[in-house]
Design a protein around this nucleic acid. Structure first.
Lengths: 142, 142
DNA sequence: ATAAATGCAAATAGTTTGCATGCCC
DNA sequence: GGGCATGCAAACTATTTGCATTTAT
């Protein structure tokens, strides 16, 4: 069910190559969804790939629009397959994540655009808060 | 016009101290508004303060609610004085920043809350896009 | 064949920590 | 005076880079 054949064609059209390492990283992101470089490395480590390759590949794929760079809000980047635009909410207490339909933000974004004159690329935002469970028992230390 | 005397009292009430280093960092953030650890260090370097102290102080002030941690979206954190809740838009091309009234997002946020069950702390968000100038001449390399 | 991509290893940047000393209250 | 805070230096983590080699096309 992976879209990797299509990505392979895209890359070749630009003179780039689909390698086993790129394939493994794309597969990891297809399975994992929203991962940091370290998490990706964990998942592909068994292939013998280097961390340097992970970083280089992520940068390459992001430059070519195949990955989106998201931000975990903790000072580190995360990556995921581009395509379905959506946002994340992360619980500050337990770390639970869920996706948010971008349609919910669309009105606010177009209003921000008209007020500021900026054109926003709000491709992938991360919000923070408390999940339903954690907001009941306030401030139980993780 | 600085609120440092008030912050001093807050700290003392918790048994903490207002030092020249903390004062300098607060002043830098008061003037600079929205700065990374490295930018803050640049501004206070002349006092002889160490980078370690900058990091420790920022963490301390953020823990005590005096600073907000924001996210530049580039994998690094930024800090600013808490108080006025607001958001930022940063131009991807030229780096220009502007503030956004949080009222614009309030409806979207309450809708997200009711759909997801999460309680959001959307204290400080960073959006990315193109500023009015840069969106006219598309993709002129910085 | 040839240019792109990888591995290896070292360099760099950013951040954190331990401990002795200094300074605020 | 007592304890919080800082400086110093080293450790640690995350990320980047150069160069020789491998590999996809």
């Amino acid at each position: 069910m992976s879209c990797i054949p299509r990505l392979t064609i895209m890359l070749r059209a630009c003179g780039y190559r689909m390698t086993s390492q790129r394939h493994a990283i794309l597969q990891a992101l297809h399975d994992g969804g929203h991962l940091s470089p370290a998490q990706i490395y964990q998942r592909v480590e068994s292939t013998g790939m280097t961390e340097a390759t992970v970083y280089r590949t992520l940068e390459f794929l992001a430059e070519n629009g195949i990955l989106l760079v998201a931000d975990r809000g903790n000072g580190h980047l995360a990556y995921e397959l581009s395509g379905e635009s959506h946002h994340h909410i992360i619980c500050r207490t337990c770390g639970a994540q869920m996706e948010v339909d971008p349609a919910l933000l669309a009105p606010a974004i177009s209003q921000m655009e008209s007020e500021t004159g900026y054109h926003l690329n709000a491709g992938h935002l991360t919000f923070f808060g408390l999940c339903p469970l954690c907001k009941q028992k306030p401030q139980e230390r993780a």
